[in-house]
Design a protein around this nucleic acid. Structure first.
Length: 287
DNA sequence: AACCAGGTTATAA
DNA sequence: TTATAACCTGGT
């Protein structure tokens, strides 16, 4: 599935099927990848700046060795997985055929649990530009400075790095009422009353309950964390877009969250999370 | 001015 | 268990 085409100085070229950078970054799972003028995307994975560009099936990654490719990059972009199999298995009717074709280059990222937790707490009742702005401020204020090709970037601050910040600090970066949620997350992760990095080993339902002990983490945010950072692919985050698109194409009427969850679970089972991504991406452009 | 945006919380039926 | 109002903030 993944072929290493070329290896230059700190630079790799891959050939991959079902991998589109724009789709992967625009399908609602992440907030930090930046598109540069020359069609490059720059992001930070495990504290390291990575620059990627794409032409059709060819992916060029700058600032990356072969070891780093197999240790972090492949995993982060879920490149070991055969997405044509997944698309086949969930595209049993017209809507999913349409949606999975439209977003056929989406990959489900495996992001850092902490970053995902905080990012999606901030996402609640908020809009994307503001979410991105707040996360950026958070990183610039408390993250580590990283210099890459003359530009300055910042890592996402760890729970440890944030352990002494106050509500006032968070208000300054315009978190609003979510400030108290963030403080609760910092406290619970640091004192291990929620063992964040162990949750992926647990049963999905239990892990979900654990996440929801944190203030500001309800069903939707919990499902996002499970799906985007813990590989819990049966999760089906239900936001306003998913509700709209499901009601239009699968119910042809109003439906309750419970009905929708049940439908997703019985129809797609442990592939529901992939279906959610295709539907979300499709809905954002067609509703 | 009123309403909305990747929901959650607190309260009440 | 399910329904409703209030919520920081910035944009329309």
């Amino acid at each position: 599935m993944v072929k290493l085409i070329r290896e230059d100085e700190h630079c790799l070229t891959l050939q991959v099927e079902h991998f589109n950078l724009l789709q992967t970054f625009e399908c609602g799972q992440c907030f930090r990848w930046e598109q540069k003028e020359d069609n490059h995307f720059v992001g930070i994975v495990k504290g390291k700046v990575i620059s990627i560009c794409q032409e059709e099936q060819y992916i060029r990654i700058r600032n990356m060795s072969r070891d780093e490719l197999s240790e972090t990059f492949m995993d982060y972009f879920d490149l070991h997985r055969d997405y044509s199999k997944i698309i086949d298995s969930i595209s049993k009717e017209n809507t999913m055929k349409m949606a999975s074709e439209y977003g056929s280059g989406i990959r489900l990222l495996k992001q850092d649990e902490w970053e995902t937790l905080i990012s999606f707490i901030l996402s609640s009742n908020n809009n994307i530009p503001r979410i991105k702005k707040i996360i950026k401020s958070l990183c610039e204020r408390w993250g580590d400075k990283i210099t890459y090709e003359g530009q300055t970037y910042y890592s996402f601050p760890t729970a440890k790095q944030l352990q002494h910040i106050t509500s006032e600090d968070l208000k300054e970066i315009k978190c609003g009422y979510r400030a108290s949620y963030i403080l609760d997350a910092i406290q619970k992760v640091n004192d291990k009353s929620v063992d964040l990095y162990y949750l992926k080993e647990m049963d999905t339902g239990l892990a979900r309950k654990e996440l929801m002990k944190i203030k500001g983490v309800g069903p939707k945010v919990a499902d996002c964390i499970l799906l985007f950072s813990m590989g819990k692919y049966e999760s089906y985050p239900m936001d306003v877009w998913i509700k709209k698109v499901m009601e239009k194409y699968f119910f042809e009427r109003e439906a309750t969250p419970k009905e929708i969850q049940k439908f997703a679970s019985t129809t797609w089972g442990d592939m529901a999370g992939f279906a959610q991504q295709y539907l979300f991406y499709y809905a954002r452009d067609h509703m």
